[in-house]
Structure formats: structure tokens, C-alpha cells
Design a protein around this nucleic acid. Structure first.
Lengths: 340, 340
DNA sequence: GACTGGCACTCGCTACCCTGGAGTGCCAGG
DNA sequence: CCTGGCACTCCAGGGTAGCGAGTGCCAGTC
């Protein structure tokens, strides 16, 4: 039996009130605050029903009701009306982001902004290597058998690696190799470079094959290993605003999880399939974050996605506001990157 | 009137017990645990004296005593015997640090290690630009009027900046300039480069003066603005182990302070004058950290100091252990940098 | 003069009880 | 199907009592 209109209204009201007050909501208060056309007793019946279906629960017998993860899910999918940002908020976002001087700065400003606007923990992934393309490769001789490889991408990111060579090289050779690898690789998407790198090794003058292999190996390593590694985090202090109910009392496991880069990447990195993703409580893969909700999305210049960003907070968060903040920030950052 | 030997013993015992148990320590427990040769009543007299002098205090009438900031200070200065690290700990440190692939990795490993070993919040400053020297400067033409400047230092750090040129250049010119600036600047301490950069502009062929000024301006900017900017942080979850007494109940202001880079730099960046610095409670300049203690030191290859690192925790921390951990880690990191 | 044992006193902590109030479930009636 | 009413449950808050740890002080001893 599906939920009728009024039951859905009741669920929506419960979610909204609970998010606002952080206290279990009872039937009487509900009819008053929302000017319902029915009596408290009727609402109680609906509540009993919603509880049977697993959308709400009672913390204790004879307390008010609290939404369950399932209830929030239904709310997010069907019931929430998107709150557009106020013009003041839009202006705040713009003001915060313009004036960034480089990539680092963009990312830092973004993550702080997001934390401030949503009042939650914010995570921003640096533009991922694999989705951007190579703008320039530089080789610098550090000694006769060591080179420094510097890779510059079109998202402004710079990666460096030291290469140990099997034989000595002089400057003219280095410069020849530099020219070759730039010719072959500049403009290529990082994800498609491995093939081209292989081609380089195959085609090279046999006298240089050892050296070129060394360089190719390091290049590949750089592409694979360091991909997507960096992240910025802000707003952890917001966790302390939580009530005792929110994270079953301890924010410790959450702080711990937030220090694991791998975990964070899982949270926001895999964005890309859906435009915007909301994971509520249980739905999180990560054990320690089962008491939190995560709202994440991808961002990038134009339609391409080069990284993820998102926020993490108590399951009892203001979803409509959070969702619109996250997507607005992602949109603005995308625009910034497109300009640069 | 100076403190006699026994009163100092009593103070030491109080600090040690309080650190271990986190509970106010009374006279009876003290004589038992420390096999003192005097009675509890005598200890009580000494305690009364120590309290008058401001070294300890009672949380409530008729509770045990707790050290004050002043008490900890005396303990650190005069009473603590340094705990050398166990061989197991040394090995753990080494194992943790070897195998780092680049500077980022070194810093990350270090900060995690420090957090783990001390059980507190750890902060590591990236090797500061101003104290290292230039290994190589690279100029890359991105378009006819834009160059990318990449600066590589001997601590392995890479900084990049885009330069907008007032006129167009071709590749041969770029490469000529590259040669010149490398000749003049490689090997120089960053702190002494500004003069040399000025010299570059003065000596350059008049036809190129506009371009060279643009490059010089960006170089100077890079040196000044970005100096000392980056930091790594770990172990914030350790704050939650604190008892209610520790941070007068709320870790929020501390988490907030820890997100301000400026604050962190103040904490550990100014290391350098003293070999190792301990700031206890009140002694901290930063308002929000008056309830914490900070142990910090400088590190670097050999005797030079290129950055700071340290930990932050409750005033009730195990100072001897923390101090030796911090200095051991600093020493090891210094060695790692010297090798690279 | 320094130390000790003893004693009265303070005060926080815990357990307990009690009561008020909010909220529920259910039932009978419209 | 909805409503008003009623009995019931249970949390929260406040007050009280007892316990225990710890203190300060004093008189006595070495």
C-alpha cells in the first residue's frame, strides 16, 4: 500500500521540524506548526503507519518521532523542494572565489567557502590528473645521471619526479629528448597517454633506448600512482555543533576517517556518473561514516568533470539547502577553471 | 623562600600522576604510589605551600591537586628527566620514514608518524622557501606572450607561476633568458636572491628590459608571497581523547584555530631561535590555544633549519615523552633531507 | 623545628525517589 | 475515515541522602 498524500506531508513536516529543532517531534506540535487540517490523533495514526514502514522511529516509547535514514531518503527523493540560493549567498560565493591567484588558492578558497556556507565539513579534490591533458613536459638535468621531470597540465597542476638514468647524458641530449616527448605527448589526455608512451620507447633510436625506458617508466608511474591524490578539507570544527544523538555521541571515528585520504576520495572522487549524489547514513560504504550523510558532485570547466567536491554532516542536515549550496559552488568553480 | 628538595619531589610526583591518571591527585595516593618516606600529612603541608606559590591548585575544595601552567613549566624546566626512545620506537620511526618517494610524501609521512607516536595533533611545515636555495629555474612558453616559470629548490620543492609578458617572445629568446637567469641565480639562497634579481634587470640588454622586468617581478613575488605557506596536519582525532577538564570542555575553538594556516605557522614556524620550544597553556599567544601546550622545533638537513614541526595537546601531556619524540622525528627528517 | 597521627569538616558524586509533562495507543462515537 | 478523550509510559529535572576522598589543623613526638 502506497503512502497517500497526507502521510507524505506528515513525513515532510517531521523531517523539516526535526532538522530545524533537533528534537523529536510530536503530533500536537506538528499540527500547530504546519496548520494541518486534521487533528493530532489522525496524525498519530499516520505516524504509526510511517513507523511500521520504517520511515520514522521513536527514540523511546512516548517520545516524539525522528526520521530514519530511509525517511530522509524518501524526503530527498520525493519531498524536498529545492531552495534556491538567496542573491546575498550568490554574491558571497562570487566574492569569495574571485581573486584566487592559482590552483592551490582556488581549491583552498572553495573548500572554506563550502564549509562556511553549509556549516559542515567540506572536501574538495584537486583537479584530477587523469581527466586533464598535458600542456608541457620539462626535463632538467640535475646531475649527469639524474633528471628532474616536471609535468604541467591544462588544469594548472604541476607534478615532478626524479629520474635515475642507467647511463650519462649531456644537455644537448636532454634537450633532444625533451623535444621528442613534448611533440608526442602535449595535448593528450592523461588517460590516453600510456599508449603513446609505449610508442615512444618503440620508436626511439636504439642507442637511447635504455634512457628512454627509464623516462617512460617514471612517466607512467607519475600518471598512475599520483593520480587523484590531493585533497583539501575544511570545517571539521562544525562537527562539534552536533547534538549527542547525531553521531551516536562521538565524533572521533569521523575525525579519524577524515584523515584517511583514501576514504575521502571514495566519498567525493567517484562522482561523475550522477550529477549530484546524496548518501544518507547507512548508504555510506565506509563503516565509520554510517552516522553521517554526504552530498557530493563533480566539477570542471564546461561539461567535463575534473574533480569532485562535497560536504559531510549529520544525517539530520538541511538537505535542500546543502544540495543547492554544493551544486552552486561546483558550478562557480567550474566557471573559474574555464576562464583560467 | 626557595622550594626544598622534597617539595620539588612532591610537585614532580603530582605532575606525573596527574598526567598518567588524569585525575586530581591526593596526598595519600601520592605517598603510596611513590614510596615516599614521609607521611601523608607532611605531603599535605607541602601541597599547601605549592598551592600558595601557584604551582598547583584544587579544582574544588576537598579534591586532590592538579598542576597549574606554572607547575608544568617548572616541571619541564627543572624536574623532568628525558625519556630516551625505546629501540622499538626508533625502529618504528625509521620504518615509517624510509621509502618516501618525494617531498610531499616525506611531509605526509612525518606528520602522521608524529601524531601516532605522541598521540596528539601534529603539524609539519613544508621546507620553507626562504631558507633553501635554487637548484633550477625553468621557463616554458605557454603562448607567445605567456611564460610559465617553474622554480626548483634544493629541498625538492617546486613552485610555478604564470608570467604575462608585455611583448611577444620566441623560443630562442626564452631559452637565452633561461640560461641567463640560471647562471645568475642557481645555488643562491632564496633569501639573498632579491639583490641578484635586481642586478639581472640592470644588466640586461635594453631591448629585453620590459620582458626581464616582468620576469623579475614574478620571481620576487614568488619568493615573498608564497614563502612558508604550506603545512600538513594530522591527528586531530586525538583531541577527542581529552577529558572534560582538558580544554574546558570544548574542542571546537581548537579545531577552528587549527584550520587557520596563519595560526599554525605562528605555532611552529617561528622555531629556529631555540632548539626546542615548549609553550604551556597561557604562554601561547593565540587566544584559543590557551588551554593547550605546544612542543615545537626546527628541522633541516645538517645544522640549517628549513622548517618547523611540532605537536599540540592538552597541557596535561607527557612532556618528557613528547619532547623526545618531537626531537627524534625532527632529527630523522633532517637526515632524510640531507640524503636527498 | 620538623614530622606524624588523628579528627572534624567540606564537598562532589551517585543513587534514589518523586513529580510534571509530553507524547503515545487505543477506543468509542460522529 | 476522522476525532476527542482517556489511560498509560517514560524522560527530564529537582531534591535528598549517603558515601568517600581529600583537606586543614592541632596536639603530640622525636
Amino acid at each position: 500500500m502506497p503512502l497517500d498524500e497526507r502521510k507524505l506531508d506528515v513525513l515532510r513536516a517531521i523531517v523539516e521540524d526535526y532538522v530545524a529543532t533537533q528534537e523529536p517531534v510530536g503530533s500536537r506540535a506538528l499540527v500547530e506548526r504546519h496548520h494541518m487540517r486534521v487533528s493530532a490523533a489522525t496524525v498519530r495514526n499516520d505516524m504509526a503507519f510511517l513507523e511500521d514502514e520504517g520511515y520514522i522511529r521513536q527514540p523511546h516509547t512516548s517520545a516524539g518521532r525522528v526520521p530514519t535514514d530511509r525517511g530522509y531518503r524518501l524526503f530527498v527523493d520525493k519531498l524536498s523542494r529545492i531552495k534556491p540560493l538567496s542573491p546575498a549567498e550568490r554574491r558571497a560565493i562570487e566574492r569569495f572565489l574571485i581573486g584566487a591567484v592559482d590552483l592551490d588558492d582556488v581549491v583552498h578558497r572553495t573548500v572554506r567557502l563550502l564549509a562556511q556556507v553549509t556549516g559542515q565539513v567540506a572536501v574538495v579534490q584537486y583537479p584530477s590528473l587523469s581527466r586533464s591533458s598535458i600542456r608541457h613536459l620539462e626535463l632538467v638535468g640535475v646531475s649527469t645521471t639524474r633528471l628532474l621531470l616536471v609535468m604541467i597540465t591544462d588544469t594548472g597542476r604541476v607534478e615532478q619526479r626524479v629520474i635515475e638514468l642507467p647511463e650519462t647524458v649531456d644537455d644537448t641530449e636532454v634537450s633532444a629528448i625533451r623535444t621528442v616527448i613534448n611533440e608526442k605527448l602535449v595535448g593528450k589526455r592523461l588517460s590516453e597517454t600510456p599508449i603513446h608512451i609505449q610508442a615512444l620507447v618503440d620508436e626511439v633510436d636504439p642507442t637511447r633506448i635504455g634512457m628512454m625506458s627509464a623516462i617512460a617508466a617514471v612517466l607512467l608511474e607519475t600518471l598512475i600512482e599520483r593520480t587523484d591524490e590531493r585533497l583539501a578539507l575544511a570545517g571539521t570544527a562544525n562537527l562539534t555543533r552536533a547534538g549527542v544523538l547525531d553521531f551516536h555521541g562521538s565524533i572521533r571515528p569521523i575525525l579519524e576517517a577524515l584523515e584517511e585520504e583514501v576514504v575521502l576520495l571514495k566519498l567525493i572522487g567517484s562522482a561523475g556518473e550522477e550529477p549530484l549524489r546524496v548518501r544518507i547514513g547507512d548508504e555510506n560504504e565506509i563503516e565509520h561514516l554510517r552516522a553521517t550523510s554526504v552530498v557530493s558532485t563533480g566539477y570542471g570547466p564546461g561539461a567535463t568533470i575534473v574533480g569532485g567536491l562535497g560536504v559531510l554532516g549529520p544525517t539530520r542536515m538541511d538537505y535542500p539547502a546543502t544540495i543547492s549550496a554544493v551544486s552552486a559552488v561546483a558550478r562557480y568553480v567550474g566557471e573559474m577553471l574555464a576562464q583560467a
